[in-house]
Design a protein around this nucleic acid. Structure first.
Length: 354
DNA sequence: TCTGGGGTCCTAGGACCC
DNA sequence: TCTGGGGTCCTAGGACCC
């Protein structure tokens, strides 16, 4: 299993359009205005040297890198460039499973994975002028983790053979799938390193994290996992739109206006998909940062835009406290899923306008 | 340093049924 | 007059990832 990850993808794509920015501090996020409520999507390596990180408020980034160039996120363009990268990966003959704009698993059967990885990097660079790094593993977890050691512009192999030597002493937080919360809970059990996790009593892990997750985290500590690379096209569960208001809003009129706009956006994605909607949901974030969700199944699957909007507005009227200051509103819809026995859900146009 | 947006999957509790 | 045990569905919330 190979894991291919583009280096500073979003920043690198922007630099291709603006060659004068090569090597400079570039921060991509929000609408590119560092005084707004938004966060960093990607920072160039030069900006990272100043301490700018993904997920950081743009305001903070501007304080750390006052001379950086701030650019708006242009998702459509990244999607197009990403598509070209994935075509190059498929042309290598590997089975390609796309994970996001800038990464994919490759399944191959080759004698010399390092030279294959080198060829992949060279092909991507030649076709797109983008640099990448490749992790080689005997399963997905190890390939994914290997990429971290390959970056930038490199190749690294992580298998059962060197897993302990490379990973055992590292904090569990570095594992793919262990976030801040789980790391803290594990820490409460005295489990701090990957070696601790690998050796942890399965019953203790199950007690803390549940039977399924407990088992899964234990395997993660040992670097175990699936090595299946699956290239069947992804069927999205749902679509959503959310906005953080630049200034908090309040009152039923503001709520309804926002929900109408968000729903119209979601319905664009639903229309492109063509499957009926089976459930709608809201995400509500009151000031200062109290977040809650509400969702409701529809009585019957529908392709009628008006019905979806009515369901969203009804849910909003029933569950948003119009007296409180709102920081964010989000609308999510879930679509009917194929039953999984090869019987697809019919994809036809949506009715109505909203 | 006041904390985006778009996703996925898992868990837990209550309702409901037999 | 109070209540077992198993199963499924629905909803809310939590955690994680890019």
């Amino acid at each position: 299993v190979l894991h291919v990850d583009l280096d500073e993808f979003v920043a690198a794509v922007e630099v291709l359009r603006r060659p004068e920015l090569a090597g400079r501090e570039v921060v991509v996020g929000g609408r590119g205005d560092p005084t707004e409520r938004a966060v960093v999507s990607t920072a160039s390596y030069a900006a990272r040297e100043r301490g700018v990180r993904s997920g950081m408020p743009l305001r903070t980034a501007a304080r750390r890198a006052p001379d950086a160039t701030f650019l708006p996120v242009d998702g459509e363009h990244y999607t197009a460039v990403s598509g070209r990268v994935m075509e190059v990966l498929r042309a290598t003959g590997a089975v390609v499973e796309v994970l996001g704009w800038d990464e994919a698993f490759l399944g191959v059967d080759v004698e010399d994975p390092e030279s294959f990885a080198g060829r992949v990097r060279a092909d991507v660079l030649a076709a797109t002028r983008l640099h990448s790094s490749v992790g080689i593993g005997d399963n997905r977890v190890r390939a994914k983790m290997a990429t971290g050691f390959a970056k930038p512009r490199g190749v690294f192999r992580l298998t059962a053979e060197n897993w302990v030597a490379v990973m055992a002493h590292r904090p569990v937080r570095e594992l793919w799938g262990v976030g801040a919360k789980v790391a803290a809970r594990l820490g409460g059990l005295g489990i701090r390193t990957v070696a601790d996790l690998a050796a942890a009593d399965p019953a203790v892990l199950a007690g803390e994290l549940g039977p399924k997750l407990g088992r899964w985290y234990g395997s993660l500590g040992r670097g175990e996992g699936s090595s299946v690379v699956d290239d069947t096209p992804w069927v999205p569960r749902g679509h959503s739109r959310e906005t953080t208001f630049q200034r908090n809003v309040r009152g039923p009129e503001a709520v309804e206006a926002a929900l109408r706009e968000l729903t119209a956006g979601v319905l664009e994605d639903v229309a492109a998909d063509g499957r009926p909607v089976v459930r709608v949901g809201l995400k509500i974030r009151y000031a200062p940062f109290e977040t809650t969700t509400r969702s409701r199944g529809l009585k019957a699957p529908t392709r009628d835009r008006g019905e979806v909007l009515d369901a969203v507005l009804a849910l909003g009227a029933a569950s948003v406290d119009g007296e409180r200051e709102l920081r964010l509103l989000g609308v999510r819809v879930e679509m009917q899923m194929p039953r999984g026995d090869g019987d697809p859900v019919e994809r036809t146009p949506l009715r109505g306008r909203v």
